[in-house]
Design a protein around this nucleic acid. Structure first.
Length: 560
RNA sequence: UGGGGUAUGGUGCAAUGGCAGCACACCAGCCUUUGGAGCUGUGGAUCUUGGUUCGAAUCCAGGUACCCCAGCCA
C-alpha cells in the first residue's frame, strides 16, 4: 500500500512541526542554521545537531546557513573556524553561506538602542556580585536594580560610552527590562551586553568594547537571517520565552525555536571542557587521537561519513534524555566497512610456523579474494613459502574445549593456501612456545582437499620472507565505565589503561606502502586504517573497529 | 519549597483511541575457505494509582522518578 519512500522518510516531532508550519502558513519556506561556537573541535554530539539542521532544510527544499557564534572574544579563534568547516564538509554537509554573529554587531547595536528608546532596556551599574545577589533564587523573586528606572537619555549616553570603551570590564551591563519576579530566571532582566576590552575579537579586532550575550545575539541573528526554525538542544528550552520576547518587542521576524535531546554515548565524555582536559593532561595524544569522540579523531581512526550518518539516523530525534550505546555506532561502522573494504592478511601478534615438508626456498603465488561482499573487487596473488607467521591466538599447546584452531596433532586450513597439521613445538628456556612445526598436504592447494576431508578452522597467515613489518595501534574504549561521569572520583579515575596497545606485526606485501587514510579489513581481526604516521620503512595502522569474535565471547563466558 | 521538560524490552526510537513494532545488544540454530558476513528463530517493555471508553502507551485527575535553569558562558 505505502511505497518505500514513505516508509524510509525519517519522521520525528521536529519534522512534523516543520511540516505543520508550512501547511498552516506560519512560514512558506524553510531555513535553518548551524550555530557552532568556534572554540573547539567538533565531536560526534555535534553531528546529531548538524544533521538535523542540514537534513530538515534539505528535505523541505530549504537552505542551511553556517553561522559561527562568535560573541565572546575570550574563547574563540579562527583556527577552529577552519577546522569546523573542514569537518562539516567531510560529513557532506552543504550550506548556502557562511556568516558570523559578528557580521551583525552594528545592526544588533542599533536594535539594542531601539529597545533602550522604548524603555525596554537599561544600563545597570551594579557589580556582578550585586547583579547576582539581586537575581533572587529558584524559589524567591529578585529585586529591581537601583538603576532600573534611569531615563532614556542617560541610558543611551551610557551605552554609547560603554561601546566606546570608557568603562572598565565588569563595571556596567546593558539589561533587558522584563520582570525581576519572573518564575523563569532567564526573564529576570537578562544581560544583553557586557564590556570586554581584551583580547581583540578574531574578526572585528579591537573595534568593539562591548559584546552581546548569547540570548541577545542568537535570536536576533536568526531573525535577521530569516531563519524559520532554530533547532537546538534541550537546555535552551528555558530560554525560549526570552527568544520570543525580543523580536516581539522589536516587531521583527519571529523564527521558531524547537529543542531536542542532545546525543550522549556510553563509555564517552562529550563536554568540551572534559575533552580539553584529556588533551591537556596528556591522557590522549591530541584532539585527533583515535580514541577521542571528535570528528578529527574518528576520521583518523577510519570511520566513514556514511557510517556516522547511518548511526545518527538510527539514533533518532526525541526529547528524552538518552545515552546511546556505543556498540550501535560500532555496528554501523562494521556494516559499512564490511561492504566496502578490501580484505588483507596481517598478523598482529606473530608466531613463527615452519612447514617442515615444504621445499626450502620455494615460493608460490596464492589467489586471494579481495572482498567476498563485492565480486568487482577482484583477486590478488599472495606469496606463500616454508616459514610463515600466524596469530598467537590461533595456536594452543593444550587446547581448551571447543578450540578449533591449531594445536599439536590438529589440522587447519591456511586461508587460500594449504591444510597444515601441527607436529611439534619448540620452546625457549621460559617454557614459552617460540616456534611451531607443521607439515602441509600438497593436494590441498588453494584450500580444498581432494578427498573431501574437512577442517574446522581456517586461519590467516603471512609469509615470513615476504612480509612487511608494521606498527599496529589497537584501540579500546577510553573509559572502563559506561558512564564515566558517574560516581565521585570523576571521569579521569576510570580511564582504561589498556585503551591503546601498540603492536609490531607483519602485513602482506600489498600493505607495505599504504596511502594514509586507506581502509582495509585484516581478515579475522577487524577493520584498520593507515595512519598518517606511516613511513616507507614502517606502515602504521589504526584499529577502526574489531570484527565480531564469537570465539572470544565463548572463551570469556567459560570464565577464562 | 519556583519555573521548564521527560517517562515504552538492557539501550535508542516507533505506534498520533483499535493486534505494542523496528534497530543495536542478548540467547539458540543454520550456513561458511574470515568462529567475519549472511539466514532463521526465542526471550524480554508501556513509571504508578484511579477515572473516561466497547476498547487507553495514547484522553482526564492525582502521585512518583529523573533532567535543565540562580554566568557579565554558549
Amino acid at each position: 500500500m505505502c511505497d518505500e519512500e514513505t516508509i524510509n522518510k525519517p519522521s520525528d516531532f521536529i519534522r512534523e512541526a516543520v511540516a505543520e508550519d508550512l501547511k498552516n502558513g506560519r512560514f512558506n519556506y524553510v531555513r535553518t542554521r548551524l550555530p557552532p561556537e568556534p572554540n573547539g573541535y567538533l565531536h560526534i554530539g555535534h553531528v546529531k545537531a548538524f544533521m538535523i539542521d542540514y537534513l530538515i532544510a534539505k528535505e523541505n527544499g530549504g537552505e542551511l546557513i553556517l553561522r559561527f557564534d562568535d560573541t565572546n572574544p575570550a574563547k574563540e579563534e579562527t583556527e577552529f573556524v577552519e577546522a569546523i568547516m573542514d569537518d562539516a564538509r567531510w560529513l557532506g554537509i552543504e550550506w548556502v553561506k557562511v556568516t558570523y554573529a559578528s557580521d551583525y554587531f552594528d545592526e544588533l547595536y542599533e536594535w539594542a538602542k531601539k529597545l533602550v528608546m522604548m524603555g525596554k532596556a537599561y544600563v545597570d551599574d551594579q557589580t556582578p556580585e550585586e547583579v547576582s545577589a539581586n537575581r533572587g533564587t529558584l524559589t524567591e523573586p529578585g529585586k529591581n536594580s537601583p538603576f532600573r528606572d534611569r531615563d532614556v537619555e542617560e541610558n543611551l549616553d551610557l551605552l554609547e560610552r560603554m561601546k566606546n570603551g570608557e568603562f572598565p570590564d565588569g563595571s556596567r551591563i546593558l539589561r533587558a527590562k522584563i520582570d525581576m519576579a519572573h518564575p523563569n530566571i532567564n526573564m529576570r532582566d537578562p544581560a544583553m551586553y557586557r564590556i570586554i576590552h581584551e583580547p581583540p575579537h578574531h574578526r572585528t579586532g579591537s573595534k568593539w568594547k562591548i559584546y552581546p550575550m548569547y540570548d541577545w545575539a542568537h535570536g536576533q541573528n536568526d531573525s535577521m537571517e530569516g531563519i524559520t526554525h532554530s533547532l537546538c538542544s534541550l537546555e535552551y528550552e528555558n530560554h525560549r520565552p526570552l527568544y520570543e520576547w525580543f523580536p516581539e518587542q522589536l516587531g521583527v521576524f519571529k523564527p521558531r525555536q524547537i529543542e531536542f535531546a542532545r546525543l550522549n554515548l556510553t563509555y564517552t565524555v562529550m563536554s568540551k571542557r572534559k575533552l580539553r582536559r584529556l588533551v591537556e593532561e596528556k591522557h590522549v595524544s591530541g584532539w585527533d587521537d583515535p580514541r577521542m569522540p571528535t570528528l578529527r579523531a574518528m576520521r583518523r581512526r577510519g570511520y566513514t561519513a556514511e557510517a556516522i550518518h547511518d548511526f545518527i539516523r538510527r539514533v533518532g530525534v526525541a526529547k528524552n534524555y538518552s545515552v546511546s550505546d556505543v556498540s550501535l555506532l560500532e555496528a554501523c561502522v562494521r556494516e559499512d566497512l564490511n561492504k566496502t573494504s578490501l580484505r588483507r592478511m596481517a598478523v598482529i601478534k606473530p608466531l613463527k610456523v615452519v612447514i617442515d615438508n615444504y621445499p626450502e626456498g620455494q615460493t608460490e603465488e596464492m589467489d586471494a579474494v579481495n572482498n567476498p561482499e563485492d565480486p568487482n573487487a577482484g583477486t590478488r596473488k599472495v606469496p606463500f613459502s616454508k616459514v610463515i607467521y600466524i596469530e598467537q591466538d590461533d595456536f594452543r599447546e593444550t587446547p581448551p574445549p571447543k578450540y578449533y584452531r591449531l594445536f599439536p596433532g590438529n589440522e587447519v586450513r591456511l586461508r587460500y593456501a594449504y591444510f597444515i597439521k601441527c607436529t611439534h613445538v619448540v620452546k625457549d628456556d621460559k617454557d614459552e612456545v617460540v616456534e611451531v612445526h607443521a607439515t602441509y598436504d600438497p593436494t590441498t592447494r588453494g584450500g580444498d582437499s581432494a578427498d573431501g576431508r574437512k577442517v574446522k578452522s581456517t586461519i590467516h597467515w603471512v609469509s615470513a620472507a615476504h612480509a612487511k613489518e608494521a606498527e599496529i595501534r589497537m584501540y579500546d574504549r577510553l573509559f572502563t565505565k559506561e558512564d564515566p561521569e558517574e560516581g565521585d572520583e570523576g571521569f579521569l579515575a576510570c580511564i582504561n589503561p589498556n585503551s591503546l596497545q601498540i603492536l609490531t606485526g607483519y602485513v602482506e606485501s600489498h600493505l607495505a606502502a599504504p596511502e594514509a587514510g586507506s581502509r582495509y579489513q585484516f581478515e579475522r581481526l577487524g577493520y584498520f586504517c593507515a595512519d598518517p604516521d606511516s613511513t616507507s620503512e614502517k606502515p602504521v595502522f589504526n584499529l577502526t573497529v574489531n570484527l565480531k569474535d564469537a570465539w572470544a565471547k565463548l572463551e570469556k563466558k567459560s570464565g577464562k
